[in-house]
Amino acid sequence: MPDTAADTNGRAGGCLCGKIRFVVTGEPDYPHVCSCIHCQKRAGGPLQSWVGFPLDGLRWTGDGEPTWYDTFPGETKRGFCPTCGSHLAALDYGDTTIGINLSALDNQHDPHLAPVNQSFRSTAVAWLPQVPDTQLSTAG
């Protein structure tokens, strides 16, 4: 069973089948939900939830690394498990932060992981209540 503690060793997570595992260390940055068309199609639902961590604090610990797909060629790639299809991460080329899909984390109950905003509200489905912008940020 995966370690679910968010301790000094980091936060553990992985895919549904358990093949790809990871640990991220560092402070979580800008937890939010995204309702852009790409996130909706990848998630198979109305939104995905993300949180950033320092890229140098990421360590893949399972039987491999995700398969990467360029959703915005040359700008952003998304990592998923090639076996079970779980979406795990997003990385903007040249960035020092990696976006981790909140549902990929073993312990999602940490209050520091509660979404502070909703990106791409204009493409959100009408029946879904919006997440309030508690950070008052213009970051997308």
Score class of each variant (00 low, 15 high):
residue 46 P to S: 15
residue 46 P to Y: 08
residue 47 L to Q: 09
residue 48 Q to P: 00
residue 48 Q to A: 13
residue 49 S to R: 07
residue 49 S to I: 01
residue 50 W to Q: 01
residue 50 W to Y: 12
residue 50 W to T: 02
residue 51 V to A: 06
residue 51 V to C: 13
residue 51 V to Q: 05
residue 52 G to S: 13
residue 52 G to I: 01
residue 53 F to L: 09
residue 53 F to A: 03
residue 54 P to Y: 11
residue 54 P to N: 10
residue 54 P to C: 13
residue 55 L to R: 11
residue 55 L to Y: 09
residue 55 L to M: 14
residue 57 G to E: 11
residue 57 G to R: 08
residue 59 R to M: 11
residue 59 R to C: 09
residue 60 W to P: 05
residue 60 W to N: 09
residue 60 W to F: 15
residue 61 T to K: 08
residue 62 G to N: 08
residue 63 D to L: 11
residue 63 D to V: 00
residue 64 G to T: 09
residue 64 G to Q: 03
residue 64 G to S: 07
residue 64 G to A: 08
residue 64 G to V: 10
residue 64 G to P: 07
residue 64 G to I: 07
residue 65 E to K: 10
residue 66 P to W: 01
residue 67 T to M: 12
residue 67 T to G: 06
residue 67 T to V: 14
residue 69 Y to V: 11
residue 69 Y to T: 08
residue 69 Y to P: 00
residue 69 Y to Q: 04
residue 70 D to G: 10
residue 70 D to I: 00
residue 70 D to M: 05
residue 70 D to Q: 14
residue 71 T to E: 11
residue 71 T to I: 15
residue 72 F to P: 00
residue 72 F to H: 15
residue 73 P to H: 09
residue 73 P to K: 08
residue 73 P to C: 02
residue 74 G to T: 04
residue 74 G to N: 04
residue 74 G to E: 06
residue 75 E to C: 00
residue 75 E to V: 14
residue 76 T to R: 14
residue 79 G to D: 02
residue 79 G to T: 02
residue 80 F to I: 01
residue 80 F to N: 04
residue 80 F to R: 04
residue 81 C to A: 10
residue 81 C to T: 03
residue 82 P to M: 09
residue 82 P to F: 04
residue 82 P to K: 12
residue 82 P to D: 04
residue 83 T to P: 00
residue 83 T to S: 14
residue 83 T to K: 12
residue 84 C to Q: 06
residue 85 G to C: 10
residue 85 G to K: 07
residue 86 S to P: 12
residue 87 H to T: 14
residue 87 H to S: 14
residue 89 A to N: 05
residue 91 L to W: 13
residue 92 D to W: 02
residue 92 D to A: 10
residue 92 D to C: 09
residue 92 D to T: 13
residue 93 Y to L: 13
